[in-house]
Each structure stands twice: as C-alpha cells, then as structure tokens.
Amino acid sequence: MHVSNRYLAKRLVYIILNLILISIIVFGITTVLPGNAAETILGRYATPEKVSTLERELGLDQPIYIQYIDWLSSFLTGSWGTSFQHNRPVFDLIVTRGARSLYLAVITLATITSISIPLGIIAAVYHDSKIDFGITGVSYLGISVPEFVTGTGLLVVFAGPVFGVFPAGGYTSISDGGIRQWLSHIVLPVTTLTILSIAHLMRLTRTEMVDILKSDYIRTARLKGLDEKTVVLKHAVRNGLMPTVTLLAMSLGSLMGGIVVVEEVFAYPGLGRLIVDSVTHRDVPVLQASILLVAFVYTFANLAADIVYTYLNPRISYGGSAR
C-alpha cells in the first residue's frame, strides 16, 4: 500500500500545529501555577525589591504573549533555562536524565512486543480453553496491580535481606561500574514495566483477535477449506494487528507514565523522577521543557503508528479528500 506524499506532508503540517498547541497548553498551565517563580527562587522571606528585580531579569513583568514567544524561541534554540532546584542548565539535566529513562523505555518496548502479541493471539485462538483462561487470568492480575505495588513487591523479594540479588535502587552508569552493575540496576525497573505493559497490550490483542475470528470473512476462509494456520496467521492477524499497532503507540503513553512511577519506586534518577521533583518543587523551567520533550517524542511515535496502520489496512485511505 502506497502512502501518498501529500498525506505525509499534510500530517507534518498538522504535527507542527499540534506541537505549537501543546506548547501553548504546557506554557499556559505552568504560567498559572500558583506561586511566583521569583518568589520560589528567593524563598518566602525575600524583600519585595529583590523579587521585582529578579522578575525583571526573568522577564516576568512582560505581557504574557511576549513571555510565550520568548520562551518558545529560546526552547527551540536549545537554551532551556536554569533549573531553580538543581541550579544547572535544564538542557544538560534533561539530556542526562532522559538518556537513562530511554534505556528503560527501549528495553521494555522490545520485551513487551515480543511477548504480548504472540500470547494475545494464542489466547484468542484457544478462546475459552484452559490456555486462554491461564493467560487471561495472569494478564488480569498484571493489569490490575499498580506498578508501584508490583515494583515494591519485586523489591521485597529480589532486593530484600532474604534473597538480595539486585540492588534496592539507584543507578550506576556503564562507564562507572561496567555493564553488569548497570544491568543490575535496570532489571527490576524493566521487569516492573514489562509486567504492567504486557498485560495491557496482550489483553487488547486478544480482544481484537477474538472478535475477528468470529467474523464472517474468517468463516468464509474456513469454508473455502483453508487450513487453520493460514486462516489465523494470514487472514486474522493482519486485521487483528491494525488496532494493536495504534494501541502499541498509545501504550507508549502509559509506559511513560509507568516510568515516572517506577523511577520513584527504585530511586532511579531518570526523567520521570526529575518531573515529579519539579512538580513538588515547582521547578517550572524543568517541568516545561521535560513535558514538552516527552509530548514531542510521543507525537512522532503516533505518527509512525498511523503510517503503519495505513499500510496494514488498505481500506483506510488518508490520501483522498472524500473522507
């Protein structure tokens, strides 16, 4: 299936509009945060003169749209300001922390895709059998138990006094402690995230496949005398995976949320922990830049999913204007 260039160009324009809208939302929300930035930096007992001097330095006395344009243009040029809390350039902070979160995200994504989709298909094919019951039962537990409970549970078992194979938290870079040390800090967070996301994705794959396996065209394919393997793998999976592709991109969002919580549980110094810290300490520059960055990544992931979706389903054509 050919994805038309016009469609792609159109999508790109929308994405830029989308990102501008996001930046307005993020800026809007963070600007009306209770508590003035200058007061936050100087503390509660600062004199009014000092506050107004700093406000002028930070440009907080300017009209709001000028503040927005200033903020956006400096964001685009890579000067993301200085963190109130860490007193370091936000850019450096986010790059260091973001890379650590990225390790978690990439490893988790690879694990869940290779486990959950096959399991979902198996559960749907053996619908209502003991295999389905077992897989579905476990997936229910995975989806219902919050990641901070799973994470804490794993900590108790694998980092506790009884069976302490892994460190209870923290992080060591490859250059500091070698690959073994690095991995030992990553195993438990990734396991927690995988348990969370596998259930999610597998359940959706199964639901979708069960519906499709009961549809008329599958019945027709069976009546035609095709063997079950062809029916499932060629006819059903192709259609069953279409929503799954979108859902995989959507579950990236829940994965990012999961990372925030999991980093908190394992004291893993990644982007998620940085965001939570900046919410509690009202570190506005960090909050703005990190959320904008995450939204940026997420938007492009969704674009990729849309393109794959169009590729898999010839009936949905985004190219034409008839829709």
Binding site: V26, G257, V260, T299
Partner: peptide, 30 residues
Amino acid sequence: GGRVDELIMRLMDTLMSIPSLLLALLIVAM
C-alpha cells in the same frame, strides 16, 4: 466527518500527545 471531525480530532490528539499521567501531573501541579 469532514472538516468538523478533523478539527475535533486534532484537538483530542493534542491533548493525547501528552501521556496521561504526565498531563494529570501537570494539571495537579497547576
């Protein structure tokens, strides 16, 4: 469908471009 659909879905997409827990965090922060 058509333009109306496109406009509404663009707005929804924008809200969805921020992962759920992070948007919730942002709103709670506000």
